[in-house]
Design a protein around this nucleic acid. Structure first.
Length: 256
DNA sequence: ATGGCTACGATCCGTAGA
C-alpha cells in the first residue's frame, strides 16, 4: 500500500495540482489536510473521475480533512470521540484491512497562548483516541500535519527555532507520547538525507533556501513496521506555481 | 527590524497559518 499525506492549503485552489500529482504518483490512499471548505463544496466528483473515493470532514474557511482511496472504505468516523471541538481535524476509515487516521493537528500560534494550550489539550485527546483505536485495529496508520518537528534534525535552523512553537518541549513530549502507544515515524525507519523537510514558509523565499520544518509525518503501528519498504517527501509539487506551503509525504508498506 | 506570503471572507482589512 502506497499511502500519502498532503496539507493542500485549500482543496479548491490546489485541485489541479492534486489531480496531476495523483496521476503521476498513483498512491492507493491519500490523507488531505486544510481543505478550507465545507463538504458540500468538496470536489468529490472530480476526484471520483480520477479514480479516488473520498471520506470528508469539511469546514468552511478553516481546517477540514479527507481520506482518498482507490478501494472501498469502511467504518468512516469523524473527529475525536468525546472531545468537544468545532474544528474539523480528524477523519478515519478502514481501507483494505488497514485503519487510516488522518489528522490536522493544531498550529499552536505561540508558546503560552490560548491556542498553544488548546494544541496540548488536543494532543492529549488524540492520544486517548489512538490508544482505543489501536486495541481494535492493530494494523493502523496515523498520517497528517502534526505541526511538531520531532527533533532538531527536522528543523532547518534549530538555534533560531529553539523553544518556539512546533519544537517546544511540551509539544515534542506530546508527539513522543503518541509513539509510546506503539507507533513509529515511518520516515525514520530508513537512512535519510540531511535537511529533509515537508513545510517551507511562503515568505523570505523559504523553499529556495530550504528553510523548512518536517512537521508532516506518517506513523505506523508496530504491526505494520516490518512490512514498510520506503518513506519519503516529494518536493516536486512545492516547486510549482502557486503551491501549497506543504509537500506530500509518502510511506509504502505491505497491505492486507 | 517580529516584517516578509497565501487563502479566505469579508470589503478596500482582519484572521489564520507555521
Amino acid at each position: 500500500m502506497k499511502l500519502a499525506s498532503w496539507n493542500v492549503n485549500s482543496i479548491k485552489v490546489r485541485l489541479p495540482q492534486l489531480l496531476d500529482w495523483l496521476a503521476a504518483a498513483r498512491p492507493d490512499v491519500v490523507c488531505l489536510q486544510e481543505l478550507k471548505t465545507e463538504e458540500g463544496k468538496y470536489p468529490r466528483a472530480e476526484l471520483a473521475a480520477a479514480g479516488y473515493l473520498s471520506a470528508v470532514n469539511g469546514q468552511k474557511t478553516y481546517n477540514g480533512v479527507a481520506i482518498l482511496a482507490r478501494a472501498d472504505m469502511q467504518d468512516m468516523a469523524c473527529d475525536i470521540a468525546g472531545f468537544d471541538d468545532v474544528q474539523r481535524r480528524v477523519i478515519a476509515a478502514t481501507v483494505q484491512g488497514v485503519r487510516v487516521i488522518c489528522v490536522y493537528c493544531p498550529n499552536g500560534q505561540a508558546v503560552g497562548s490560548d491556542k498553544y494550550a488548546y494544541k496540548l489539550r488536543w494532543f492529549d485527546a488524540l492520544r486517548g483516541y489512538l490508544a482505543g483505536e489501536l486495541t481494535r485495529h492493530p494494523r493502523l496508520v496515523v498520517a497528517g500535519d502534526f505541526n511538531v518537528a520531532p527533533e532538531d534534525r527536522d528543523v532547518h535552523d534549530p538555534k533560531a527555532w529553539e523553544g518556539q512553537v512546533h519544537v517546544s518541549g511540551p509539544e515534542r513530549a506530546a508527539w513522543r507520547a503518541l509513539l509510546a502507544l506503539g507507533l513509529k515515524d515511518s520516515f525514520r525507519l530508513f537512512e535519510q538525507p540531511e535537511k529533509i523537510f515537508s513545510w517551507w514558509d511562503y515568505r523570505m523565499m523559504g523553499f529556495r533556501r530550504n528553510a523548512g520544518l518536517r512537521i508532516d509525518q506518517i506513523l505506523l503501528s508496530d504491526a505494520l513496521v516490518p512490512g514498510c519498504s520506503a518513506s519519503s517527501v516529494d518536493k516536486a509539487p512545492r516547486r510549482l506555481e502557486r503551491p501549497s506551503d506543504h509537500a506530500p509525504v509518502i510511506a509504502e508498506f505491505a497491505g492486507a
